[in-house]
Amino acid sequence: MLTLNHFLVLAALLFCIGLFGVLTSRSALRIIICVELLLNAVNLNLAAFAAYVAPQEAVGTSFVIFLMVIAAAEVGLGLALVISLNRTSSIEAIDTLNELRG
């Protein structure tokens, strides 16, 4: 029997893999696509909850739509940042950026 837990565990797994990627990647580009993976896992959660818990109303599904919009905006801005970062300092490795160093 396919249950909600299947989807939730899968989403958790995808989320944690993405988290690992965000924490360890040295490339800004890869961090951005890892963030996409995180959002994707959340979307999967929402869609699964929508289908199982409140199938009459498409509230969860509409949230997925909103998240997709936000993700598209985020990826657009993030990639623009990568381009301008690449142009101004030709730094690609993110861990060499330490302007926040105290």
Partner: peptide, 29 residues
């Protein structure tokens, strides 16, 4: 990071595993 991610997954999965939900309804939105 690997340890943290695995731990995160463990926490999430144990939380999820402890819950029971209604089965997938036939009436699909």
């Amino acid at each position: 990071a690997a340890f943290l991610s695995v731990a995160f997954f463990a926490v999430l999965a144990s939380t999820v595993g402890g819950a029971t939900w209604a089965p997938l309804s036939e009436q699909v939105h």
